[in-house]
Every structure is written in C-alpha cells, then in structure tokens.
C-alpha cells in the first residue's frame, strides 16, 4: 500500500499528518487525495450502496481530520485511515440493518463492461449483491482480504481483532457466499453461522 509521496508533494504520509496537526491547511487534503481511491473502494464494497459509501467516506475523513492529533504512529497512516473508514461503514451498516441493501454500485467506471460478455457481467452483479447480504463484519473482512488484497495481519490491525478472527470471518463469509450464490445448498435451510456459532469461532471472536 502506498505510504510515500504522490504527485508534487514530496512528503510521506506521516509527514503530511504531522504537518496537518501543525496547522498546514493543505496537508490533510493531500493525504486524502493520495488514498481516497482505495478508501472509496473499501467503502463501496463494504456498503454496496454508492450514496452510503460516499457519506461513510466523508464521515470517516472528517473524523480522521479531527482526530489526527491522536495518531500515535503505532501503525501505518493508511492502516489508521482504513480503520476509520471501515468503522464508519460498519456503523452505517448497523444503523440501516432494517433497510435491505440494493446493489447500486454498478460502477460508474464500467464502460469497459460493454465489451464483456453478458454472463460475466451478470456474475459480477450477482456477486456484488451477495456481498451486500453478508453480515457486516464478514463483509468487511472479505472486502479487505479477498477484494482489496490486504495481508491478514494488516486487516487484523484495521479491524482491531486477532488474525484468527479475520480468517474465521473470511472463511464463514465465503461459505455464506457459496450458499447465497447457489454454489452450495443447505438442505436444512440454515445459512452458515446464521444461528450456530461453533466453539472455534467463539474463541476467535473473543480471543483478540
């Protein structure tokens, strides 16, 4: 993940954050511009709704802006930013639980889709839809690990849980996706982890 300078500003992320705390009016904006594409992707994948993602990203950036003085440097700035964005997304997802997610993130940048087969496009849409139906914590872990390709250790730092918990959430999320996508049918009508929490998961969730 990028942590160094981008464009014309030679300062790295930590220097930008420190400059912001010291009153540089442009430093935080530069920091956000440097990482906003990746943060946007996380927000959009996690929430599955363009407007919610935009609101969550804005909430998160303002929170980070105000809380910058509290950054202690025990993680990368990008990890810290991701943590704030993911928390904003999870908060928003919890608040809207009564409202079914609608997969509206057919990316505005998908003219490339016009050159792909209808089957491929349909598959993408169905997967995006299924992602929005996962429990929020599983969705966040899967987005960061499987879609954004972040190392499990970094995802653990972002989510503030043990690495085993990240792996468990991913495993359960994938199994649930398998059912949602029709690759796997649960003859009992039960969905993975919908009601049963095996001992291993309880240990992982509580053993941070």
């Amino acid at each position: 993940m990028r942590s160094g300078p981008l464009g014309d500003d030679p300062r790295d992320d930590r220097a930008l954050l420190a400059a912001h705390v010291d009153g540089d009016p442009d430093a935080f904006g530069e920091l956000v511009r440097r990482h906003r594409d990746r943060l946007w992707a996380v927000a959009l994948r996690t929430l599955g709704d363009r407007e919610d993602a935009a609101d969550a990203l804005q909430d998160a950036c303002l929170s980070a802006y105000r809380a910058a003085g509290g950054f202690r440097g025990d993680s990368a700035v990008t990890t810290w930013l991701h943590r704030i964005v993911v928390n904003a997304c999870l908060d928003r997802a919890r608040r809207r639980q009564v409202r079914p997610a609608v997969p509206l993130e057919t990316a505005q940048r998908e003219p490339v889709a016009a050159t792909e087969s209808a089957d491929t496009l349909t598959t993408r849409l169905v997967i995006r839809d299924a992602l929005t139906r996962l429990p929020a914590d599983q969705r966040a872990a899967l987005v960061l690990v499987d879609l954004e390709g972040l190392p499990v250790a970094e995802v653990a730092a972002i989510l503030g849980v043990a690495e085993g918990t990240v792996k468990s959430r991913c495993a359960r999320g994938r199994a649930r996706l398998a059912v949602l996508l029709g690759h796997l049918r649960d003859d009992d009508g039960n969905r993975p982890d919908a009601s049963r929490v095996p001992p291993a998961s309880r240990r992982a969730e509580g053993g941070t």
Binding site: R36, D37, W40, A41, R50, A107, I127, R128, R174, H183
Partner: peptide, 17 residues
C-alpha cells in the same frame, strides 16, 4: 473455489467518482 474465482472476477472498483 467457485466463490474465490467469483470474487477475483469482480475486479477493481475504479477511482472515486
């Protein structure tokens, strides 16, 4: 395996609008 392949096929979101 099918789920992993499907997730991999999602591709990038693209730049922030």
């Amino acid at each position: 395996a099918a789920v992993r392949a499907g997730l991999a096929a999602l591709g990038p979101v693209g730049p922030v609008p």
